[in-house]
Design a protein around this nucleic acid. Structure first.
Length: 152
DNA sequence: GCCAACGTTGGC
DNA sequence: GCCAACGTTGGC
């Protein structure tokens, strides 16, 4: 059992979109970064905890909790020429990009990025590192517990 | 809109 | 294999 922070632009997929999706589940499409892909492909497991983070928006921060609800499988948007995530170099026989399904658990009061920065207990979080752009980052069980108990 | 930080690409 | 150029991310 592991924990993750996954970024999403609320314009594309917000915690409310996840809550209202069929089966409260969305495929995590569009990851086009090898490190983030490798996390999904190699390390994520069914039932892993997810901090659902809103990025590139007026109030960036953790907006809710979710759970990994599938193992990794090929991201169909890589083969769709009309998709913004289309990758002409990816082949059907050898898909380059994968995704996992994520299921809604709960919406929480927003934990703003600035609030995360205030706590020394969270200083090592990848998402707080200067210049961090990785859309999926590991969260330790200590960080997870601290955020749920103290910040939500 | 700005800009720092980062990842990727491609020429050599 | 190096590295400059470029494109993207994402907070502010």
């Amino acid at each position: 059992m592991r924990y993750w922070l996954m970024k999403s632009e609320p314009d594309e997929a917000s915690i409310d979109d996840l809550a209202h999706a069929p089966q409260h589940t969305l495929p995590w499409t569009g990851v086009r970064n090898y490190q983030a892909r490798n996390f999904m492909r190699d390390t994520m497991q069914l039932g892993d905890g997810v901090l659902f983070y809103h990025s590139s928006c007026p109030e960036p921060g953790i907006a809710g909790l979710a759970e990994v609800s599938s193992t990794a499988y090929p991201d169909p948007t890589q083969f769709d020429a009309k998709s913004p995530y289309y990758d002409p170099k990816s082949k059907q026989e050898e898909p380059r990009w994968v995704l996992v399904d994520v299921v809604f658990k709960k919406k929480t009061p927003l934990v703003p990025l600035a609030a995360l920065r205030e706590h020394p207990e969270l200083a090592q979080m990848r998402v707080l590192a200067k210049g961090n752009r990785l859309s999926i980052t590991p969260v330790t069980s200590e960080e997870w517990r601290f955020i749920l108990k103290r910040l939500m």
